[in-house]
Design a protein around this nucleic acid. Structure first.
Length: 573
RNA sequence: GCGCCUGUAGCUCAGCCGGAUAGAGCAACGGACUUCUAAUCCGUAGGUCGCAGGUUCGAAUCCUGCCAGGCGCGCCA
């Protein structure tokens, strides 16, 4: 079992500190802040010196502490240099021989020597959550692609990921929709081509016609009471909506399927019991006729049952938590939703914990900010409407197609279409995933499809250039042995390749896909620098072969990284 | 009124569970294509890290208070 380099070093430092001081402390190993200091640094000495003074009363300076650690540190197999600098930083430079050896392991392993976790968990990821009878719009984009990337990464590490699409398929608006469907007399085999239009029309009728309003209310009651005809019409609306959003998932390369759907309706039968149990536990109380749970730090309680007896989305979310833990066996539940839901989830989580439903289970909210237009206001069409996801994706592919056609007109149109899809959709996803999800982000067509900077096309281009080398050189098989790193660009590239696992691990724990993006971008820039300075096909043996190994590893790492982000990597651009 | 999030170069963003001289890209300026895709690369310039205190050997990072922007706060989801 090989560990990530950083963890290997942590272990070595822990041993050294134990030997030198008989203490168990974190060695604070981090990547070097500047390349000139080496590859990794341990920052433990400064703090430790201070602790020692307090414990022993003896004056100890940090450099001395560092010195004593270094004396016990056994890293000759992996480092070519260990030095103490500044107030007591311990800098470690990996040896090219060790880097080559590790790269050899990567090359020989189809998961690039990324270790799987020792204790796999069942992890539920709740994301996307489109609304029934509405088209998906940009408001669903972030949840869908961030949640999908997080799922892929956690899955890759060896956990069992259970995707849950909590679609909005229940609620009072369905009375209106079903009643409208009934009177619109649509033939049973016809499709609702424009859901938006259908919803608007139903709403308009509801707002203007009191008789219809009353019918809508009665319809809800019958639906929720299990009325057969209402249930059938409801089912039809749900299926019509699926017809709209499944193709969007397909285009986006998002792994959600119908099997992952657990809409609000799924929990309907569990709601009375949720309220009952919370009452029994003494958490739920009556307030102004409603049943509520007061939570710490919030003035307003969480309402779980309305005064008319109806349930709310908080009730559904509580039922879902219980189901996910008790039935699905989740040890970790992750929600990627708009940060405006923060208070809601904080309250729901607290109630679930206090009710004792989530003992030993990690409930995590991974919020994201709003997508803004270049004017800094929420992203809208020119006329001020929300942008439909379908239109956004169409435009992305169109723009990418004209770019590809301009840059590479010789390729057949079919292939240019495929590249345009990869670049356009990938561009949208990467633009989003590459920013810290917590902040609002500014959407810009130009920046997103640019070939410079931290963009999907830049990474895809790096990949395509490598593949091009293999095509031109007619290379099928690689030498398995003999990797050596001599040119500075080779070494810089090789060292970064070894850090892929750090990025993945970070995404998994912090739920921030942009850490992987930053890693891949850095990898691509190091590759391009290598590419500019180190000829591959024209180099003499054995240089040629070992550069081919580096190229292959880089291509595989970029491909795997993009795969984890849910972004395609075409062979040519 | 209470609460959450954000504020870093002209612009878009990293860095934030304390570490060395705060990093990228775009835009600007100057260079590099008879050589594996120049959709690229190299260089120059660009900073009161919103403001003020505090903690610390050390603060963009932690704490407090302000300022600015965004968002949320009982029977919608």
């Amino acid at each position: 079992m090989t560990h990530l380099v950083i963890h290997e070093l942590e272990g070595r430092f822990c041993d050294a500190i134990r030997e030198a001081f008989n203490l168990e402390v974190s060695p604070q190993v981090v990547p070097a802040t500047h390349e000139r200091f080496g590859d990794y640094q341990a920052n433990v000495a400064m703090g430790l010196a201070k602790e020692l003074v307090q414990q022993t009363g003896k004056k100890t300076n940090p450099r001395e502490v560092a010195q004593r650690i270094v004396e016990k540190l056994r890293v000759s197999d992996l480092a070519e240099n260990v030095s103490i600098a500044g107030p007591g930083f311990i800098n470690v430079t990996l040896s090219p021989r060790f880097v080559a050896e590790r790269l050899g392991n990567m090359a020989a392993d189809d998961r690039l020597a990324i270790p799987k976790v020792e204790c796999p968990q069942r992890v539920v990821v709740d994301y996307s959550g489109p609304n029934i009878a509405k088209q998906m719009h940009v408001g669903h984009l972030r949840s869908t692609i961030i949640g999908d990337a997080i799922s892929r990464v956690i899955e890759f590490l060896g956990h069992t990921v259970i995707r849950q699409n909590h679609v909005g398929d229940w609620g009072t608006q369905f009375g209106m929709l079903i009643a409208y469907l009934e009177e619109s007399n649509l033939p049973i085999d016809s499709h609702i081509e424009d859901l938006e239009e259908f919803y608007r029309a139903a709403k308009a009728r509801f707002d203007s016609n009191p008789g219809f309003q009353e019918r809508a209310r009665q319809t809800v009651v019958r639906l929720q009471g299990g009325g057969e005809r209402e249930r059938m019409l409801w089912q039809r609306i749900v299926e019509e909506t699926r017809r709209h959003y499944l193709p969007i998932y397909e285009r986006l390369g998002v792994k959600l399927t119908v099997a992952d759907e657990r809409g609000e309706s799924f929990y309907n039968d569990m709601l009375p019991q949720v309220v009952e149990d919370l009452k029994k536990a003494g958490l739920a109380v009556e307030s102004d006729g409603a049943i509520v749970v007061f939570t710490s730090g919030f003035e307003n309680p969480l309402i779980i049952q309305k005064s008319d007896g109806g349930f709310l989305y908080a009730t559904t979310d509580l039922a879902a938590i219980r189901y996910r833990i008790q039935v699905l066996g989740a040890k970790r539940i992750i929600y990627t939703h708009d940060s405006r839901q923060a208070q809601h989830f904080a309250q729901v989580f607290e109630v679930a914990r206090r009710a004792g439903w989530a003992d030993g289970v990690s409930l995590e909210f991974a919020p994201f900010g709003t997508m803004l237009g270049e004017d800094g206001k929420p992203f809208k069409t020119r006329s001020g409407d929300t942008v439909k996801l379908k239109d956004l994706l169409d435009e992305a592919e169109e723009r990418a197609f004209s770019l590809v056609s301009e840059k590479n007109p010789a390729l057949p149109e079919e292939q240019r279409r495929q590249i345009a899809k990869a670049v356009g959709i990938g561009g949208i996803k990467y633009a989003d995933l590459s920013k810290d999800r917590i902040s609002d982000y500014v959407f810009s067509w130009e920046k997103m499809l640019a070939l410079d900077g931290n963009t999907a096309p830049y990474l895809q281009y790096a990949y395509a250039r490598i593949r091009s080398i293999f095509r031109k050189g007619n290379i099928e098989e690689l030498p398995g042995e003999g990797l050596e790193l001599s040119a500075p660009e080779e070494l810089r590239l090789g060292k970064h390749l070894l850090r892929f696992g750090e990025a993945i691990e970070s995404v998994s724990t912090e739920l921030k896909p942009h850490h992987l993006c930053t890693y891949l971008y850095e990898l691509a820039t190091r590759f391009t620098s290598f590419y500019e300075n180190c000829p591959v096909l024209h180099a003499d043996e054995p240089t040629r072969s070992r550069r081919l190994i580096l190229c292959s590893l880089t291509a595989r790492t970029i491909a795997q990284g993009l795969e984890l982000l849910g972004i395609e990597h075409p062979e040519q651009m």
